[in-house]
Design a binder for these strands. Structure first.
Lengths: 238, 238
DNA sequence: CGATCCCATTGATATAAGTCAACACCTACG
DNA sequence: CGTAGGTGTTGACTTATATCAATGGGATCG
């Protein structure tokens, strides 16, 4: 491991939400056992069914966590960017990885072996608490996703997703899709074709303006209204 | 609190997976602060948006965790039976409950205040580990659910669900739906009408035999084969 | 014992979203 | 600079599943 690598790992890990509450001494221990790895665009960090080596933190680049069907279709669960982590829920169980982790760009990930985390839980209760909070948040996000795909229509999911990319507050906002439209479509839960059409529909209604991956949310009020209104003609108040 | 209640609470809690690893002394503490509550069929234990009082354990009865859309539709996330718990992911965040928890039968739940759990995490690292493992398992289950509804067809989901109710191994098995078909349908992610039709299809193919809530899995081999085969004509090997 | 409610089934019809296929880009690379 | 591979758009068509509506049990209860 190079010295530069060492500093990079340390900087990344100390700023990770999971380790935020952990004692300094313990963090040094974590850093000592962590190792960095670079993966080039398109390469798999971990494939469905394989054993997970530990917790992964993205230093730079972008990683896609996805499920793949027997046909060619795939469902993207999460896009993991710099400063984010994945694999928490897997290292603590003796089960194989349930998803594919693919680098969407040349990336660097830092790997913290599971054993280190287990030891840390024993020694540092604040870290344990942080890990629990982290897992809980991840669960909430997943539940929100299930809610979205189970009881919202395609347009609504697209609108909600675009909104989620923007900071709340302003009446307008410009956002940039973090990946190709094909990937985003799989994230939202539609095919690339319908995504394209839905995006055009929103543009036709003057709600957004699309140019490549850059999208301007022209009327966020109507956009969020779209999300909350019922997909089907609302059954008058009961 | 009656003495009978006290013993019931103790018996329930000591057998909960989450507390399995915790030290005896700490468990006594938990039991002291827990309280039992009975809810009658149809009543809400906790509604979407409300504050969660703590961790819930079902002593007897059946509880439905569900999301509801603006229209009348709902998605059932989980059916929680005796000896199972819910609310882990909520107590550790300051967020309101994301789901509705409704008793499907006259039930008794034991409530462990969040503060007690937080304290326990500090004192007992084995409990912390148990909680983390529990959350991880819950996540895996959820991911499996997402996988199911995202890239499997209706029949496949039904077949998979029926299989999940049976102990693995035997060539045949008889299972009983834990709730009304309407609820099971919402759990699987189809309407009650399509559930009915799909069930009949399976029966017509000689895969199952249905009589009220009792279902006999006649040919589990073909049933599981159905689940794994691709929903669309498989694109020949590439 | 009839009335009522809830649950399930079935048929007819509607529709959102997927599929198939063609084409237009754009970037990259030899 | 022309060819090629990944990406996105658009159109015509198909289909799984929802929706609407009607009916038939069981239960439960006064």
């Amino acid at each position: 491991m190079t010295a530069a690598n060492g500093r990079l790992i340390e900087g990344l890990i100390t700023n990770l939400p999971i380790f935020r509450q952990a004692a300094r001494v313990h963090l040094d221990e974590v850093v000592r056992h962590a190792r960095a790895e670079t993966v080039s665009r398109g390469a798999a960090i971990c494939r469905h069914g394989e054993r997970m080596e530990g917790l992964f933190a993205v230093a730079y680049g972008l990683v896609k966590l996805a499920l793949r069907g027997d046909a060619g279709d795939e469902k993207v669960l999460r896009l993991v960017g710099p400063g984010e982590t994945f694999g928490e829920a897997v290292v603590f169980l003796e089960r194989p990885c349930p998803v594919d982790a693919i680098a969407l760009a040349d990336s660097m990930v830092v790997i913290v072996p599971g054993a280190v985390l287990l030891a840390l839980i024993e020694r540092d209760s604040r870290f344990a608490r942080g890990m629990i909070a982290s897992l809980s948040q991840r669960m909430h996000a997943l539940v929100a996703d299930v809610e979205s795909s189970a009881l919202r229509s395609g347009v609504q999911r697209v609108a909600a997703y675009l909104e989620s990319l923007a900071e709340p507050g302003a009446a307008q906002a410009k956002v940039r899709l973090p990946a190709t439209k094909t990937v985003i479509a799989a994230r939202i839960g539609v095919t690339k074709e319908t995504f394209s059409r839905l995006l055009r529909d929103l543009a036709d209604q003057g709600l957004v303006s699309v140019s490549k991956r850059d999208i301007v949310l022209l009327d966020r009020e109507r956009l969020t209204a779209l999300v909350q209104s019922s997909p089907k003609p609302a059954p008058s108040t009961t």
